[in-house]
Design a protein around this nucleic acid. Sequence first.
RNA 1: GCGACCGUAGCUCAGCUGGUUAGAGCGCUGGUUUGUGGUACCAGAGGUCGCGGGUUCAAACCCCGUCGGUCGCCCCA
Length: 446
Amino acid sequence: MSDKPAAIRGTNDFMGEEAARFDHVVDTFARVRRLYGFRSVHIPVFEHTGIFARTLGETTDVVSKEMYTFEDRSGDSLTLRPEFTAGIARAYISNGWQQHGRMKLAAHGPCFRYERPQKGRFRQFHQLDAEILAAPDPQADVELIAFGQHLIEELGVAGNVTLELNTLGDPASRAAWQAALLEHFQAHRDELGEDSLRRLDTNPLRILDSKNDGDRKIVATAPVIDDYLTAEAEDFFAEVTSGLTSAGVGFRRQARLVRGFDYYRHTAFEFVTDALGAQGTVLGGGRYDGLIEAMGGPHVPAVGWAAGIERLSMLLDAPPSESVDVAFIPLDDASRARGQMLVAALRRGGSVAVETFATGNMKKRMQRADSSGARLALILGADELAEDMLQVKDLASGEQVRIPQAETGFIGGYLSELRLMRLTGMDGDGPDFPAWRTRTLGGQAQ
RNA sequence: GCGACCGUAGCUCAGCUGGUUAGAGCGCUGGUUUGUGGUACCAGAGGUCGCGGGUUCAAACCCCGUCGGUCGCCCCA
């Protein structure tokens, strides 16, 4: 027990319901993303360290102490991606994607950050990511955010999540505002908490969302971005907000909202929840017009967001668990061998999910068949084998009938009719198999 | 990186102020007359009480360290 291998801290093994929730988030993302014309993109999980170090901002916690960085055998410094955007920007430049004009890209997969794990926060976590590249217009922001909103609605968690929106202005606005903030906070230096004093040097914008009560008082009187926006920045934000309104996306203006990474400009937004303890953000992003240029590429304005798969999973109701349609129960080896043909025919010919239960006594096999969620049990023993027959038991009603093996195809028909009934909203379990068979065969059942 | 709480069978937990062979439920395996589940009953397997050290006649229980978990700070998805 003590020498059991342990998972690396902050990593998770998901199974059963947890895995089903995770998959449901990814599946829903894949479905909704197509509705907005986002194309799938796959990029490496690691990059040269500089890709992340230079773009995210040297002073951010992610870069200064949370990256998984190592040297490979040739001595190059590599880093496991802490997020997607920088890697996608790099791929854009590496491959000359400007030839494609405007690009809408979606990706998902693991990211890594060396952090102290807690609820909704892990060292290996998984993100959904959406980016619109070569898109200078505010309509891109609107479409991107609408996609995020739609995803959250499709996942059925919209009731727990609200959209907070802000603008950080263009570089000129941001610089002016930041200078004013710095001056304001310097003036109240002795009233600030320890953490915020440190932020004064590293990232003064961060003081705005401090949770410290003393800081909040000073924040309340701090200058707001609105007073420093250039005319262009103000127009841009107005178009985003009015676009969201006409797209039917509700939001709350959050003037103190700032985003972690240095590359953000103009639009910044977060879908937040209070259901995840200290981790409020479930999906967040913004505009990063200067990023690709700063990495040595062409001037490519862009917007994007990332969402935490685990965080979304935790808000989800449990999706229905996967179950098989049919349980095959052979009573001996000869029956099992004969049954392979029937099982193969059901799977390949009828798209029927079949699981074989061939261990334990009959009672155990039935118990396992029952807990598998199968609707029908196919029972095959020496008696049936001798006459090319098959027992079919409806596990919902308990009714059982003996049919010729040649009629196995009916099972597929029966199951698809049940599925159809469920899809058209009919209640109940539907007819049991024996009754259905009698009806469809016009009473010539034996 | 900082703080608080926690760590007993595969899982969820009980174990009184330290005292003799550490328990339950679920799960697992087998059985309760011939090949039938979703309800019962019987039996069995499974734990060096996270790990290391200390206090004590005696420690799952007390102390220290360490690892891990949970929650918060920070930061962020």
